[in-house]
Amino acid sequence: MRRFGTSSHGVNGKQLKQMPGFIAKHKKLLSIFSLFILLFWLVTIQVKNGRFTFMERPVLAISGFFERIISWPFNTVASIAKGYVLLVGTQKENQRLRTENEQLLLEKAVMNELQLENERLRDALDFKRFYPPDEVMAQVIGKESSPASSTVTLNKGADHGIRKDMAVITSQGVVGKVNTVLPGTSKVILLTDPGCTLAVRVMRNREEGLLEGKLVNCALKYVSYYADIQVGDLLITSGLDGIYPKGLAVARVVSVSKHEARAFQTVLAEPAVHFSRLEEALVLIK
């Protein structure tokens, strides 16, 4: 009777006996190798089923606690320095703000008039009224902790009414959306994060597309070859994703390239908000 695993497989009894010895000798190396395979498998599963949120809350709780402690002296020094700098140019700044205030009051009066008119017309057409959302001002206490994603940590969380998937903005435009929330801390994924997508529209011609994060900037996807997109175009939220209110500035187109063989254009856009200078942000409470 032929023994299992002999010459037909190129492995003889002696080699089989040596196998446990080989495993014992390279036990550590093999376990490390298996761990690498396990991690790779873990990543591929997430590509199919979405990112795991395993252990996310305890890690955010611990890191958030230390981030508050670490950022406190920096923020205090920065605010004192800023206060001093502001004090130096107060008179000039005051004059400039007065002028600006006059202009804004004038604009506000016109806007009030337009709003009233808009509401009257909406009522006449039986359209849904637009109510501006409430907002919570939060301070950025941590930025970008991993090379493969773009996130920031805010010093406010569920205790202040913040929930997952709420929009985060500044006066310049959209920052991103809330990803994880704890009582006193929340993690926000920025527009440039590869996992962040939002529905946008070109302000100039209302052309629609989907903006996706590409770490340093964003790409406008599914824009037809024939669509009129130009460098410098401002992209605004379309409101179709149900997260961001309509009309907020998102990004500005920095490059457009077309290829006859492709149905879609390649459009790159730079976020309207400079994330490196981000200190505070508004979370829109739905």
Partner: peptide, 25 residues
């Protein structure tokens, strides 16, 4: 490297195990 990468993955928005893999290597 795997442990540090995993902690960073969990604390950010990237796939868990992604930095664990690269940092382990």
């Amino acid at each position: 490297g795997m442990a540090i990468g995993l902690v960073q993955d969990i604390g950010s928005a990237s796939f868990i195990g992604f930095s664990g893999l690269t940092r382990g290597l």
